[in-house]
Design a protein around this nucleic acid. Structure first.
Ligand code: MN
Ligand code: MN
Ligand code: ZN
Ligand code: ZN
Lengths: 158, 158
DNA sequence: ACCTTTATGCAATTCAGTTGCATTATGGTG
DNA sequence: CACCATAATGCAACTGAATTGCATAAAGGT
């Protein structure tokens, strides 16, 4: 991401934060900007690495910012196939939920927008005695890139 | 679980292990027995606590046993809403997959067998460029018990 | 300016899980 | 049985992600 692009999105992040009554500190704006600019959810590590390039920040501060963003519904935290959470901009509209694909080879995450998934949480709620607040669907496997690399190795290509 | 009950299921565990060509060691039999006797997936901590009562075992050994059971398809490892995995007997029949409910208050896990969920992984696979090997659906919320306890507190009951 | 609240930094800690290596069982062979 | 190879277990140390406690700095209101 170029600096100009980041600047272009900066105002969006600021107004998002203000909407939620959150102080739009430079750190928060940066984190929100990085998430808003990514096509797929990111791990704290990935966010931290990006930050280091142009806006160094303490590790703990990042965790705390993510925490507050999630608490205020700006950011969604999902679980991947490994031990690190992934964070992405929250799709505002309810029911815009979608599955995420986790590549067990490279650890990458991808959003999956597909037909073939119809989950009526309301129907489940009718018979389930607890209170359902959220749903997560995760697909595990090998991503396109890793599949290709694997094939290359087999056929002896460098 | 009473000792007699455990004995009753011991043979099942042994034959399961043998079917997979695994040495039915006492430790493995115990772990498989505990999982087979639980209505819902358990965390390594929970399994370990149960083990301690009548069959002490090193922590690492438990992890390694779970690993080998998962690798051979006897046990399923799922992710919960927290940072510990949960392990349960694998439902042999394909497509017997079902969602799991995670209570964010007590950390308990429940299997959810419900209509209202129709996920055609095959359909997704048609358009998704990677290889999909597994799917996990998790519902997060507050379980029946925690809801009740919460209400009791509000109404001032001891 | 003064004080209170909020945000950030830093060090230490927790927690689940993993790794390396020593030790103990198990199993097969002659 | 003695011998050796392999598999299983135990123990200690380590890792990686996240959290906690407390100190410092910034922001905001009066
Ligand atoms: Mn997504
Ligand atoms: Mn289940
Ligand atoms: Zn991959
Ligand atoms: Zn609960």
């Amino acid at each position: 991401m170029e600096k100009a692009d980041r600047m272009a999105h900066q105002d969006d992040s600021i107004s998002l934060l203000k909407q939620k009554g959150l102080n739009p500190t430079p750190h928060r704006v940066m984190v929100l900007g990085i998430l808003g600019n990514s096509p797929s959810p990111l791990s704290p590590q990935e966010i931290f690495a990006t930050l280091q390039r142009f806006h160094p920040m303490n590790r703990v501060t990042l965790y705390r910012i993510l925490e507050v963003l999630v608490a205020h519904g700006l950011v969604e935290r999902i679980q991947s196939g490994d031990k690190a959470y992934r964070y992405g901009l929250n799709a505002q509209s309810p029911h815009a939920e979608h599955p995420h694909f986790y590549c067990s080879h490279c650890g990458g995450i991808q959003c999956v927008h597909a037909e073939g998934i119809h989950v009526q949480v309301e129907d489940i709620q009718k018979t389930f005695p607890g209170l359902i607040q959220k749903m997560e669907i995760r697909l595990d496997g090998i991503c396109k890139n890793c599949l290709r690399n694997h094939k290359q190795k087999k056929t002896g290509n460098a």
